[in-house]
């Protein structure tokens, strides 16, 4: 059988918020190591990779590997039924047709169970090549969300340029142009507020704002976001999920036609 318990259901609630813009259905791969998901959006422009390690759960049991196809909107509806203080347990039997979500209130006086039908999905797994990125930027996730929101008012696409001076975001459209420059912060400052640029070579890439604005739905998961970039390869936008794992978004760049 499969059973995974998280005292903080709010983590799973936030994970669903972070994927529901991009994915309508996804296969959750459950093994001894934990729960993994890899799925592309419908247009195959972005890829979501989620990893929740078994040791990050408060209780975890997986007797045999399971691939569970789930409707993301349905799962999101169910998780919205959990209070943030609730404990969540996911439960399925071997060869399951359904998965059960159990929510328990802190003093266990309310227990809710939701059973969701699983769906058969054609699994398409992509091999992500090991890449040494030219630029890796760590910055406050709220700042990144704000910049994506602000700049998307000016154009459909946003150019991210990274150099040793810092990181520059720009957008251009019918109304005019927008530019936001962030300088590296001094090492002594608060880590959550830090902007850190590790650069081997300067990089300038252009991405669709729509996807970036979907990625920043993960902002509540982590105070910092990591952006990894190299010329002419997908951007990696990564958020740590507490002590349990991470969510990575890969986004194909726009290129000159």
């Amino acid at each position: 059988m499969f059973e995974a318990r998280l005292v903080q259901s709010v983590i799973l609630k936030k994970v669903l918020e972070a994927i529901k813009d991009l994915l309508t259905e996804a296969t959750f791969e459950c093994s001894d190591c934990g729960i993994q998901l890899q799925a592309m959006d419908n247009a195959h422009v972005s890829l979501v990779s989620l990893n929740l390690r078994s040791d990050g759960f408060d209780k975890y049991r997986c007797d045999r590997n399971l691939s569970m196809g789930m409707s993301v909107p349905c799962m999101s509806k169910i998780l919205r039924c959990a209070s943030s203080e609730d404990t969540v347990t996911l439960r399925a039997w071997d060869n399951p047709d359904t998965i059960v979500f159990v929510f328990e209130s802190p003093n266990r006086d309310k227990i809710s169970e939701y059973e969701m039908k699983l769906i058969n999905l054609d699994q398409e797994h992509l091999g992500i090549p090991e890449t040494l990125y030219s630029c890796v930027v760590k910055m406050p996730s709220q700042e990144f969300a704000r910049i994506c929101r602000d700049l998307s008012q000016f154009g459909d696409a946003m150019t991210i340029a990274c150099s040793k001076e810092g990181i520059k975001f720009s957008a251009a459209g019918d109304y005019g142009t927008a530019n936001v420059k962030l300088a590296q912060t001094a090492e002594t400052e608060n880590q959550e507020e830090a902007v850190v640029v590790e650069m081997k070579e300067p990089v300038k890439l252009t991405f669709s704002c729509r996807y970036l604005n979907s990625f920043v739905k993960a902002t509540p998961l982590c105070a910092q976001v990591q952006l990894s970039m190299s010329a002419e390869v997908p951007l990696v936008c990564e958020y740590q999920i507490g002590e349990i794992g991470h969510i990575r978004y890969y986004l194909a760049p726009k290129i000159d036609d």
């Binding site: 592309m40 247009a43 992500i128 669709s208 997908p234 194909a252 726009k254 290129i255």
Partner: peptide, 14 residues
């Protein structure tokens, strides 16, 4: 004019 690449043009199906 810029064109949107797909993720499958970078990552191969396994």
């Amino acid at each position: 004019k810029m064109a949107q690449r797909t993720i499958t043009s970078f990552f191969t199906r396994t």
